[in-house]
């Protein structure tokens, strides 16, 4: 069976859950091979083996990690040339989507982004995506080359299937052209200590209705162990960091529980949360469009409702 390349999502060799998901999806299409960019592959190998990677292509080259998109695309193109894969799967992220875009042009292969599901079909692939702010579900296929697909988190539950994860080093000389845009400075962001927005099982978000005071939103999130999100109105006002924005131009989340507090539910906000399993809203205005989406809604002032709910949850927990 042909190889299916999976770009590994990791920090210093610590493999993220999405990689296990992608390796599981890859097994539907062929034999998974991981593509590991960076150092510390030894730390990653056990987990890659556990989820079925027969090979691990390793590109440990500072020219790839110190620059941005273009060298990563060249690295992927080098592995594609070596492996002649049936498909290339990448976790959806801004950088990966752009690298996939360049790879698509380099290899003349069709690109599909933000797939929710990928299945084998008629010797090719069939993908499922969401369109128009979650209003539609579409299916698509690739008609040229080895399909390049970026997948959203939670595309499928990871299933273990032991394999050998044999390391295959890949030599790469990054072109000067690909190094023409460089990272000249980097400021790490402070960590909140709360769960990561896109991975969290629960998200509590605040909007303009917080009037700049996110403390009841944060307290409620903390008692639930949830991540904190924000509407663009709250971010634009400088009340919460842009990294926490949910919506079309922020994060797209799909948690088990989404609680929107003081958020009206504009189409661009819905685009980032409409596929959440259970949706709750707290809003003063019973006409707010967010109530069209909810499983449970409270028409009321968030400054009264949230503190009471926080206390009640605390009581239930103890």
């Amino acid at each position: 069976m042909a190889e299916v390349l999976v770009l590994v999502d990791h920090t210093n060799g610590e493999v993220k859950k999405t990689t296990a998901e992608l390796l599981t999806v890859a097994r539907r299409l062929g034999t998974p091979s991981a593509v590991f960019v960076g150092a510390n592959v030894d730390a990653a190998r056990p987990r890659l083996a556990q989820f079925g990677a027969e090979k691990v292509y390793v590109i440990d080259n500072a020219d790839v990690t110190d620059y941005l998109v273009a060298p990563l695309a060249e690295a992927l193109a080098a592995v594609v040339e070596q492996a002649a894969p049936a498909a290339v799967l990448l976790p959806s992220s801004a950088t990966n989507k752009e690298a996939a875009a360049r790879l698509s042009i380099k290899t003349e292969s069709g690109l599909i982004t933000d797939a929710l599901d990928v299945q084998a079909a008629d010797g090719g692939v069939q993908t499922t995506q969401s369109a128009f702010a979650g209003g539609f579900t579409v299916q698509a296929t690739v008609t040229k080359g080895a399909p390049i697909i970026t997948l959203k988190p939670n595309a499928c539950p990871p299933q273990a299937a032991q394999a050998s994860a044999t390391v295959v080093p890949v030599e790469l000389a990054v072109s000067d052209g690909a190094k023409s845009a460089k990272i000249t400075g980097s400021e790490p962001k402070a960590k909140s200590g709360r769960p990561e927005l896109t991975e969290a099982a629960m998200v509590v978000s605040g909007g303009r209705g917080t009037a700049g005071d996110f403390s009841p939103v944060e307290a409620f999130a903390d008692i639930l162990g949830a991540a904190v999100g924000a509407s663009r109105a709250a971010v634009d006002a400088g009340w919460y960091p842009h990294a926490n924005q949910v919506g079309q131009t922020g994060k797209q989340v799909s948690p088990q529980l989404y609680v929107a507090c003081g958020i009206s539910g504009a189409i661009q906000h819905r685009a980032g949360m409409q596929t959440s399993k259970t949706i709750i809203a707290v809003n003063k205005d019973e006409e707010a469009p967010i109530f069209e989406l909810v499983d449970f809604g409270v028409v009321g002032d968030l400054f009264e409702v949230l503190p009471q709910a926080t206390e009640a949850v605390k009581a239930k927990k103890s």
């Binding site: 579409v138 299916q139 296929t141 008609t143 080359g145 949706i279 449970f296």
Partner: peptide, 21 residues
């Protein structure tokens, strides 16, 4: 190099329970 093969409108979410505080 890609082709959309089908589309379907997502069914509207079922109306939930709304309480007034």
């Amino acid at each position: 190099w890609t082709k959309v093969t089908s589309f379907a409108k997502r069914p509207p979410r079922e109306k939930g329970e709304i309480v007034t505080d």
